[in-house]
Nucleic acid binder design. Structure first.
Lengths: 159, 159
DNA sequence: ACTTTATGTGTTATGTTATAACATCTGTTG
DNA sequence: CAACAGATGTTATAACATAACACATAAAGT
């Protein structure tokens, strides 16, 4: 398998590979790993679109034939978000596996209202401008939640 | 009272005035008005920070000595949002009265993690750039959710 | 190796946010 | 004033999220 930086541009990438990366990042940032986290993360990767905690719970329960409870799922999600490989879509009360776990942690989400798919883009210029605009009001921005709702490429024709 | 365009820069503004504006906007856009909407909107104006639907329900119940139910509050909020005078803060599951009901409907919210206050800024340049970035991915953005969390001016000293 | 400590999990219960469904009422229009 | 669209009241329930406590396990120090 070739070396690469961006997960989303690598057609060779398997979920196992993502999992490996995830564990690396976790260890480097002083987080532990666990079976539940593996299952939750893997399930999110497979989903390839935002999934609510309860949906995720059912998916994990079915896939691994075990009884998972809400608290467990939320705890795993919290850890995965701290590690930086999962993000919460605020406007959907749902979660997605990040497309670029290795690079920036400032996402702009493109959420299709038709098919539900989520794309992730990145523009540090915009992030900087937002910081600046906020600063002019005396506001120090620590986190930016940027979510665009609309119509994705694949939904143009029918839409 | 002097004429003005921006509600937030007018020190003369009363909530009654905001209410008048609200009703005008409602009628112009083909919405009806009602006592419940008046109460919900007025309570939100007084709050001057994001309030959850259930908090709002309790506030209205207490203030107007009546028994309001969740469904009623949510219905009023939905209408007020359609009219464009109330906005939802997605990352807080809460609602605020817009500072500039008359002008643009594209807000950037600055949410203080310490005092909970929300400020509303506006930058069409950023909105345009986001549209453009999205368009490059073949995505037509209809709505932008822009919420910055951090530390406001008043919370710098202690923070 | 063995204790200590911090971290993660299982479980139960409950809190919080949001909507569905259906009957009733009210303002607007013709 | 009839007919209709739009609001409301009410009940019930769905969907999302966390608190609290007991127990288990991995990492770090001795």
């Amino acid at each position: 398998m070739t070396e690469h930086t961006h997960h989303d541009v690598c057609t060779n990438c398997t979920h196992e590979h993502s999992l490996g990366i995830a564990q690396d990042i976790a260890r480097k940032s002083g987080h532990r790993w666990s079976e539940t986290r593996t299952q939750v993360y893997h399930t999110l990767l497979m989903a390839d679109k935002p999934v609510t905690a309860y949906e995720l719970m059912d998916m994990v329960a079915k896939k691994y034939a075990r009884d998972v409870k809400p608290a467990s799922v939320y705890r795993s999600l919290e850890a995965l978000m701290e590690i930086g490989i999962v993000a919460r879509i605020e406007s959907a009360n749902a979660f997605v596996a990040c497309q670029n776990p290795e690079c920036n942690h400032q996402h702009i989400f493109l959420i299709c209202n038709y098919c539900g798919h989520v794309d992730e883009i990145s523009d540090h210029g915009i992030n900087r401008q937002l910081l600046k605009q906020a600063a002019e009001k005396g506001f120090i921005a620590r986190k930016q939640i940027l979510e665009l709702h609309g119509q994705c490429k694949d939904c143009h024709v029918e839409g």
